[in-house]
Nucleic acid binder design. Sequence first.
DNA 1: GAGTTTGAAACT
DNA 2: CAGTTTCAAACTC
Length: 464
Amino acid sequence: MSCLKEQNQRSLDNGSETSAVYSSENYVRHLRTLDVNIDSGDHTDFSVPGVMPHGSGGEWSGYSREAGSSRMDHHCTNYRFYPPPHDAEPSLPQYQFATHGDFVLPQSSPFHLMNPSLANNSHLSSLGGQWSSEGPVHSNMLSGEIYDAVASICPDSKDDHGPESYRKQETMAELMPQNQMDSSQSANGPLTVYLQHLDHQLGENATLLSPTCPLLACLPLGPTTASFPPTIWSSLVLLALDTATTTCLHPTFHSLNGSLWDSKSKKPCNCTKSQCLKLYCDCFANGDVCSNCNCINCCNNNEHESERYKAIKICLDRNPEAFRPKIGNGKLGEIKGRHNKGCNCKRSGCLKNYCECYEAKIMCSSTCKCVGCRNYEDSPERKTMVWDSPDTTFYKKAKCDKDKCPLSCITLDVVEATCGCLLAQAEEAEKEGYMLCQAEKMILDEFGQCLTQIVRSIFKSTSS
DNA sequence: GAGTTTGAAACT
DNA sequence: CAGTTTCAAACTC
């Protein structure tokens, strides 16, 4: 525990990019090496050491200690992560050290947490390292991994976690005594209320984890897994979500409770046919709701939450990285980045704003598949570009924007490290058998300490 | 401002 | 996965 905390602390201190991760994607990658088909159609379920399937209609296939094999049951779409049994020797090459670039957690997007497919793919991680038999190490997590990590803390992987127990599992609201629920809501603040409101809005049409309360249902709650108080789980997840959504993971993101960014500065869209619910719409693609736009039949607003979330889910199902910023960050301190996907320009020479690289004021890279590109380092045309000099508007603007937003130092690493600290605190509280209120206080205290350090860093960076 | 061009996203 | 269609922004006149 202390090691974990130290590690996260280091990450907070220096924003290290590499840290220990036991993630679902690593697990899935490993499964691929075992020729286990985990991407067969709409229904994906698998059963492997340490993984607890859950969902409706699925037969619990469990972990075969004898064979150590994986079996597919194509009935449900969800799975859960649990630490592998202590007596299960890691027969697999294990993997812990993962690096990744930036990712995006769309504004008010519970789907990242709810949709395990996000954890199945995307974000390449390097392999290597050792299996952590004592459970997962939570650090440097992606949003999907936060879900997995939260689920994986639960040390209880007994056989009584079959589908039946999950089917019978009540939602948090049903599970908790009313007084606890109330205090939980007030403690978790508007985000909880908002998400519950969303759950309610989605109702039976929701294609998420639970027909009743999708977000809350993704938590490992239930009569037989109650070793951890429900409010802790919810606090952790919601806190992680809240933390992520209120930081600068994406420059255009707005927090649920208000905008860190001036939405008025957002460029208005002019969509006519997409209802602003497809990635054609820049607002939607950037995780923004439309405001002051010129769009027609817009559904990308708070009045159409349900449609909006369904659209988000469709996009994420199609491409888990759909809302990832197209321009990845460069190295620390650099202004320029790199187009994650690369452009495919054919006629513009990548010297017009049709080109996403050019539009982002960056050079094309090996990732691009453009034809006749003139947007490269030594291109004569590029050398005359207005944004090529540090004295140009672009550079001035970039610096200005950075100065304007001291929160830009809240990087993904910092968010992840914070989440890691909170999870570590939760683990410790559980281990020590603290009462619910004590555990909550510990986590909140930890969060306060994290925030203090972040604020210190901000003051440090802005004063220098 | 209307029409054209362009390339990303969506679809088949 | 490649080809085609749809879409909205960028561009031109």
